[in-house]
Design a protein around this nucleic acid. Structure first.
Lengths: 341, 341
DNA sequence: GTTAGCACTCTAAGTAGTTGAGTGCTAACA
DNA sequence: TGTTAGCACTCAACTACTTAGAGTGCTAAC
């Protein structure tokens, strides 16, 4: 037995109906819902087949059917094909342009959550293989030196270094030149131990400053470990009874609070990106354990200079996939464009 | 009628018992619980009095009593007096010292939530009346200038300025000197429009850079509007049935997510600080509407140079006030000490 | 002032019956 | 052969009713 056109139409009707109501859907409903003009009995036969094929599930005898993960998957795949064909018009600016990146991304998460009525997350872009662009040491206080490190993509990192003895302006200038000459344009991989010890030797008694700066550089470039993730709309979990019981909600909320866990999602999305830049994880497909009863839809955005970030929606499996995909695409395009100017 | 010793002992017994169980407590329980050796009937009489005085409430006829906000208030006030007398020993370091402030505070929130099993918040210190310490303009790219602004307390703010025409090293040096000479040591109030226009005039064709820097300075000093607040333990709300129903939990979680709302708490706490530095808001005493069914305990910590921040615990009214106060004091002291070195 | 006793109240939990949506199966029909 | 009508069956959800028990307020006695 295989899935013919009619079976798919019925499956689609079941899913659509279930997305709306959240209740198991019965044969009579489908019989009226579709324009197939089939009786409920015929639908029942088809539904029995669909269940055998694994696309729908019966929560208990004498209840209607609900879509299985496999059913959702089929539906989403077909839907994505169609969406791909449509040309997305980008009209209206959802986001007011703000000068600070984190404000912008926070706002993006809010907009996403508000538009979709699901929980939303936005990760700050990660700086892969990025290169050092500029280092600046300045005296701030008698024994305090501010090191400013700028990497490609204009990501700025500040570190305050405390020094034992006072440094003359001249020494500071020398150190600045030393560091900039040797380190600029290099990526993390290229800064090796030999280079560092050579630098230290040249810095003489100020080698501790070099150490401090190098450490700060390392931290600035490998930003992975404290990847910023902004979330919004956590309360939307409560809108869907299937997610709102104490245990599940508690887990989900913890996941949202401990951004650490969300970062797995980001990693997965960045690593394994398909052609459209949109990924859909249904139920147990998700890399994050606590979301196994949810669906997660993510998209990758890319600023110039190769910085990539992730935006995503987390909601019940019966989420309005069309709306979510549309919103993600919209935001993705906006973010893509925004910094290309 | 007034509250004598015995009445207070009974009230205390009621509250302690209610804190443990979360169930209304009856006269028989108290009769056994205390070492007063009174029969349940006597307790009943006293309880009727306590109810009339407004310290306890009967959820419905034939249920035990639960403490009212007024009852909690009395209990907390007495408890605080006692705590004040005890000398708090500070032993064991809860927090590993980390170099970055935000890491430290995030960790602090986590520790607090984990220790108390309530929800915790920690606000980054606010920089009141702080003065400009240092300005540095550097060329990062042909037409991009990085402005680094350091204010008292070593709060650093970076802004990237785009310039139309290329600036010579000499011009940049002049601008640096100009800005530092005129602005260093000033607070926001002291930088007025006259001064700015004078600066612009001196900068000549580079007046737009001066504007950009001044804007960035203003933003760096008045940090109020995007006050950072770190939260942890949101899921703990679910541990207390009285907070865990959908509507209430949803509100609380939103409040925790929209740090904006929590900032009211911070403001209130900073403004109206009592002698011990610990504030307890019971039920409707809280400035944040969504927490009217909770109790909130906050403390103010102070780093050197007058930067103040707030730490707080949000939980059910029947929270273990002693434990919470102890934990807050502990953390407060650690934070107070940490940056005094 | 304290206590024992008792009637009364109200919630929570359990039980039983009812309803209705939905199914699977069978037999008849086009 | 595919479609349909009909029917018996199942099961969750709701309602009504009962019961148990915790707790109270009041009164009378100590």
């Amino acid at each position: 037995m295989q899935l013919d056109e009619r079976k798919y139409t019925i499956l689609q009707a079941i899913i659509r109906n279930y997305l709306e109501t959240g209740e198991p859907v019965g044969s009579r409903t489908i019989s009226k819902y579709t324009d197939l003009n089939l009786s409920s009995a015929t639908i029942r036969n088809e539904m029995a087949d669909l269940e055998e094929l694994g696309y729908i599930i019966q929560p208990h005898t004498s209840a209607g059917r609900i879509p299985s993960d496999k059913g959702y998957r089929l539906y989403v795949d077909k839907m994505m094909e169609e969406k791909e064909r449509e040309v997305e018009e980008m009209k209206g600016v959802l986001l007011e342009k703000e000068d600070k990146m984190d404000h912008l991304l926070k706002q993006a998460a809010k907009v996403l959550a508000a538009n979709t009525e699901y929980a939303a997350m936005v990760s700050a872009p990660q700086y892969h293989r990025n290169k050092l662009k500029f280092i600046q040491l300045s005296r701030v206080d008698v024994n305090q030196i501010l090191a400013v490190i700028v990497v490609e993509g204009n990501v700025i990192k500040n570190t305050m270094l405390t020094v034992a003895e006072e440094l003359s302006d001249e020494t500071l200038l020398k150190l600045n030149i030393l560091l900039n000459t040797h380190l600029n344009g290099l990526s993390l991989d290229e800064i090796n131990l030999g280079m560092i010890s050579a630098l230290k030797q040249q810095a003489g008694i100020h080698s501790d400053i070099v150490s401090g700066v190098v450490d700060a550089v390392a931290e600035a470039i490998k930003a992975d470990e404290d990847l910023e993730i902004y979330t919004s709309g956590t309360k939307n979990f409560f809108k869907y009874p299937e997610l709102a019981d104490h245990e599940r909600a508690s887990e989900l909320i913890t996941t949202f609070e401990e951004k650490q866990l969300l970062s797995e999602l980001v990693q997965d999305n960045l690593a394994d990106e398909n052609s459209t830049g949109i990924q859909v994880y249904i139920g147990s497909e998700t890399p994050v354990q606590s979301m196994k009863d949810c669906s997660v839809v993510t998209a990758t955005y890319e600023l110039d200079e190769g910085m990539k970030g992730t935006i995503g929606i987390i909601g019940p499996k019966r989420m309005d996939y069309e709306k979510v995909v549309k919103n993600l695409k919209l935001l993705k395009n906006q973010l893509d464009d925004l910094y290309k100017k």
